[in-house]
Computed example of a mutant assay.
Amino acid sequence: MAAAHIAQLNIGVMVAPTDDPAVAEFMDALDEINALADESPGFVWRLQTDEGNATDIQIFPNPLQLVNMSVWETVDDLKTYVYRSPHVEYFRRRAEWFERDDRRVALWSIAPGTIPELSDAVRRVEFLERHGPSPYAFGFGTPQPPLLFETTDLDDPDTVALVERLNAELASVATEPNELHFGLTSPEITGDQGRMVRARLDGELVGCGGVRRIESNVGEIKRMFVDPVVRGRKIGAAILDQLEQASIELGLDRVQLETGVHQPEAIALYERAGYDPIEPWGVYLESATTSRCFAKAL
């Protein structure tokens, strides 16, 4: 079995409603083009309603903004369908039916047997637009090694090993006795209390992070770690994005976190992700001179 499949989301704004004569040729061809996809080598799955397409799925305020999402065995399989099948004729004419400047696309790796969620897919597109191509989200011209995420907990030895590496790194630069805050337990990151994820890049574990509920609507990001070998490839930003999505799924509308003055890269990561400085709280009051706390509304 393949190590990963490829998911894609295509967002476009139509020039007219789906029942308008201006887009009738496109709408009339949908069944044929979708059937072609279904029969193409490497096709796995596509988003559709009982009508056989996704034109009735509305997730944006603009009713003309449509989504197309599918899963393929490889990027090459998807490319073959898009550019080397009868589909390409409609692709070349897309400006007749869709606004030229409003097409948004992202590809990402997904575990075989997994169906992507639209909420995650939209975040991948937004991530690509903010950060450029990375293993978390990329385009046809910038293929990446597979980056996959797994839910985990602190009873898993491999996850514990990642956390121990994080602890050692933090301890090596600590200068104050109250500076280190390692506290996190499995019950805090399971069920409706929180979530912990770890990342595999090309099959190798390279990072982890968790979120725990600290108030009914507030979560705290904890235990963020990325293997130094893969830093600079936006893995940390990807883990953070997954934790924010998990927080929303947990019903949280705000997340907070603490990092230290000796972690300038972490501070820069959180600032780029839209986190604002806040005053230390709770146990971090004991390390107010070395703690840097941040928060973000979700």
Rank of each mutant, 00 (worst) to 15 (best):
L78E: 08
F98Q: 02
A37I: 02
N53E: 05
P63D: 09
P157D: 14
A237P: 01
V15G: 11
A106K: 02
I57G: 03
Q48W: 00
E169Y: 07
L240A: 13
A2I: 02
T74G: 07
E286N: 14
E204L: 08
L154C: 04
W45V: 05
G52T: 03
Y81E: 02
K234N: 13
L257C: 07
R103H: 04
D158W: 03
E169N: 04
T74N: 06
G282P: 14
T290M: 01
E39V: 08
G209T: 05
D31Q: 12
S186F: 06
N167V: 02
T74L: 11
D120G: 03
P135G: 03
P157I: 10
E220I: 07
A171R: 15
D202H: 12
A4H: 12
G12Q: 09
H262G: 03
L166C: 07
D56Q: 12
P145F: 01
L118W: 06
A2Y: 00
M14E: 00
Q65T: 15
G191K: 10
Y90R: 10
D192Y: 00
E99W: 00
D102R: 11
V125F: 04
D19A: 11
D20G: 03
A121D: 07
A37P: 03
V261C: 13
R100Q: 04
R84A: 15
Q256R: 15
D77F: 03
A237Y: 03
A171H: 12
G210S: 15
Y90M: 09
V163K: 13
L148Y: 06
G274D: 00
A95M: 00
W72Q: 10
K296C: 11
A237N: 07
M69N: 06
